[in-house]
Design a protein around this nucleic acid. Structure first.
Lengths: 225, 225
DNA sequence: GCAATATAATTCGGACTCCTATGTATATGT
DNA sequence: ACATATACATAGGAGTCCGAATTATATTGC
């Protein structure tokens, strides 16, 4: 659209370069995960399972697999390893004899809590961004994650934008345009959640209307560059 | 600073939520990598090696390891597998008998090219973002990557912001404020490169001055929310 | 009610990732 | 030349991933 035929002609397309950048970030995260969890005797996958169970409580194996975007055998491997390490335990579920509910042991809860405390490298890098940029990044990630959900690439997340209590752009205040009907309080992009414990799924019509209203926010139109 | 004591009090800190979002994106990338490269008989790491060699030409093993943020033995494993598959080959380097130069074979170049064509899921998700948001994301990623470099977490990248030819905010035009002295043309955030073939490293003083000028751009100050 | 089918999880085999520790050349400093 | 440093390879071990086959329940159709 705008400008600089030179650069538009000779560069990789913008989405490709953005993807390359995300790749590098992903690489650092993987590396950090090995380095950090490794000292605690965990692999990255195992740490993810612990984090998931910490956030969500007891889960079935198939739910864990879906949430981590791996196949069941892989999730089973990880859970087996964690069981051997005494960090999780399996219980049978009353109404379904095939299923097993997996939950943290006390040691597992402690390990999961310990992990969240440590200010890891990527978190400090994000924290070093100007706050407005962090908020913008969060909003962009929200957009991408919703898109991924709609393509069926990941299960539906417990995000504000999927929530029955979400009222996007309900207020005039620029810093807190949204409203959460659950806690009955205004909030802004910087408060958006990707995994809210109070989440209640909105029906399709509401979700779609909310999304429309959310993404046509005045703040979304900035001068491109 | 601004507003909503409620949400600031009850939420995870913003950087943590952003990190969680990046995690989900990283998860999707890993999953996609398995699914996509898997059909071509490659693992994600192997695909990364091919992509790296495609972008950079022949490299030494230690350079590959550094670039992928893994230890040498891991890189060696991957290269061995690729050699067996006939996609790369090793040559000895004239001036150093210990080193080996690794480069793509013809089949390897074809495989690497094939990979880049396919419009993978994450690329389409990025492409679905409003263009201004893609540009903002690219700039944010640039910031993060530079920060990671300075912490020594990744090797110095061939990015505009590290380049001798970079003239940030040299123009008044809002869409193309920067200037590349190599091709002598103005460009904008949306043209920023993370791995430019024409890159030439700037000395420390210039890099630092450029960074200052780049990050205090008028566009960086938007109303937070 | 009971075979036919579907689903939750496990197990198996195989290729690979990732690590640390060690070995084998070759380079470099003194 | 001799010690030390470097580039890479190899070995061994836990774990990640997968697809395919198993086992143990559910659910469904007659």
């Amino acid at each position: 659209m705008y400008m600089s035929e030179t650069f538009d002609a000779i560069s990789e397309p913008l989405p490709r370069r953005v993807q390359a950048g995300l790749s590098k970030i992903a690489m650092v995260m993987r590396h950090e995960a090995w380095a950090q969890d490794g000292t605690r005797g965990l692999t990255p996958t195992q740490a993810q399972v612990l984090a998931l169970l910490q956030a969500r409580g007891a889960m079935r194996l198939s739910a864990i697999a879906a949430e981590l975007a791996v196949k069941q055998p892989t999730a089973s491997d990880a859970v087996t390893a964690l069981t051997r390490k005494g960090l999780v335990e399996k219980q049978s579920v009353p109404d379904d004899g095939r299923a097993r509910s997996i939950r943290l042991t006390e040691a597992g809860a402690a390990a999961a809590a310990g992990r969240t405390e440590w200010p890891d490298l990527l978190r400090t890098v994000v924290a070093d961004l100007p706050e407005a940029e962090q908020a913008a990044l969060l909003k962009t990630l929200t957009r991408m994650i919703r898109n991924l959900q709609q393509q069926g690439a990941i299960p539906v997340q417990r995000m504000c934008v999927n929530c029955r209590y979400f009222r996007p752009n309900a207020h005039a205040e620029a810093h807190t345009p949204h409203h959460c009907a659950y806690v009955d309080a205004p909030f802004g992009d910087r408060h958006l959640r990707l995994d809210c414990p109070e989440h209640a799924e909105a029906d399709a019509a509401l979700a779609s209307a909310n999304w429309q209203r959310f993404t046509t926010s005045p703040h979304t139109q900035e001068p491109g560059s």
